[in-house]
Design a binder for these strands. Structure first.
Lengths: 221, 221
DNA sequence: TTTATATAGTGTGTTGACTACACTAAGCTT
DNA sequence: AAGCTTAGTGTAGTCAACACACTATATAAA
């Protein structure tokens, strides 16, 4: 029990974690076990510990609730409408995170709490104002694709240019010209040709690339 | 007195309010009357009321502490290092604001609390992590000049293109080519030529323009 | 082994935008 | 009338973005 002279809002972090699966932008959601919004899907997140850095809290919650760690994380926006939580005044500092296409390490389904990836284009009913948070995160991400190398945060260790192109198409929701795309991305000089190729299917194999500075997002253009 | 089961951090807003004076980017600071950092300069700001929207709190604090109102306001970032305030855990949601060159309506000097405009390039010692907040705000502002019409928020009702150019030069800290600048800004089609001119000094008078959509910031380029 | 098929990979010409750059216009002062 | 000071204007060159269609190479099926 703690007592203050003036009332204090509660502070939470919420994390919009994105990945690309089957050419679609997806968001990881957890099903709430308690009221309010019991059995509704919601963003992973929770209360910030009193001596914990905000970003550390976001990473901790993400790990605890979904098992995901080692992701690219960036602060998105702070949502503070007085009635956004029916229990008490809760201000949430929202973050967004990107994880590689196959870099998922989701908590086993045996866990009590249900979690799952949902296509951004087909989200279920969401708790609180989490729909607004996800919408803003997608906008920020789409904007950032056009002036930074943030898309590389979606890529696993080795990847083909076609896979990278799919990331752009999935986030922006529109097709991209293959030749112009490759010319532009290669001009950024942010990837190394490994010399290896990957065969999968009855067609010419793709060259594989690696990211030159993993974890670093550079501004371009 | 309020009691909670778990400790809650305190929430404040801080506002970096910019203007342009004498061709320089300036920030409005208030001198702290109490510990901690008594007699140090600090950003205007303060605790968020329990039922108050964050943005409303920022505007209220700005008005109370400096007398400034009717400004363009945008959320900047939330600063949450556990030890940023020596008293207790305080998380601050920082905003930045722009006010026209001559649109100042600062609280009379008769007020107990001392306030003043400081050149961004020559800031005094600042309380808390307010230096970091101002630095981030300037970066955001400078970046935003290049892809939006945010600079118009600095302009009074009628202004000349030379005055607008001075805004760009002051924020970016580097000179701008006059012909290219005018070509680009006029192409954005965000200003109206009033047909009026202003004489001040022994030289050709300048045409005066008005902003087409005051208060609106559009993305360009 | 031949053929079909599916994705990987490549080049050019056009257009529009940004850059660099220097002189004339017009009012005021002396 | 001359001089000073800021306002206002145009062009040529360069570079980046865009539109656009075919060849290469592997596997699978006939």
């Amino acid at each position: 029990m703690v007592t203050y002279q003036h009332p204090h809002p509660a502070i939470t972090t919420d994390i919009v974690i994105f990945t690309i699966q089957d050419g679609q932008l997806k968001v990881l959601l957890v099903c709430r076990a308690n009221d309010p919004f019991k059995d509704h899907w919601a963003l992973p997140g929770g209360f910030v510990e009193i001596d914990e850095h905000l970003e550390a809290g976001a990473l901790r919650e993400l790990k605890e609730e979904t098992g995901v760690s080692g992701v690219y994380l960036e602060q998105l926006y702070t949502f503070g409408k007085p009635d956004r939580d029916p229990r008490e005044r809760v201000i949430t500092v929202a973050y967004y995170a990107l994880t590689p296409i196959n870099g998922l390490n989701i908590r086993a389904a045996s866990d009590a709490r249900q979690i799952g990836w949902f296509a951004y284009a087909k989200l279920p009913q969401l708790a609180f104002d989490h729909k607004d948070i996800i919408t803003l995160a997608q906008q920020r991400l789409a904007a950032k694709l056009s002036y930074s190398t943030i898309a590389l945060q979606f890529m696993p260790g080795k990847f083909s240019l076609s896979e990278l192109q799919q990331v752009y198409e999935a986030v922006q929701g529109s097709p991209v010209d293959k030749r112009n795309f490759r010319k532009r991305l290669l001009a950024y000089d942010c990837m190394t040709d490994t010399g290896e190729v990957r065969r999968h299917g009855k067609h010419r194999p793709a060259r594989l690339y690696t990211v030159k500075s993993p974890g670093k997002v550079e501004f371009v253009k």
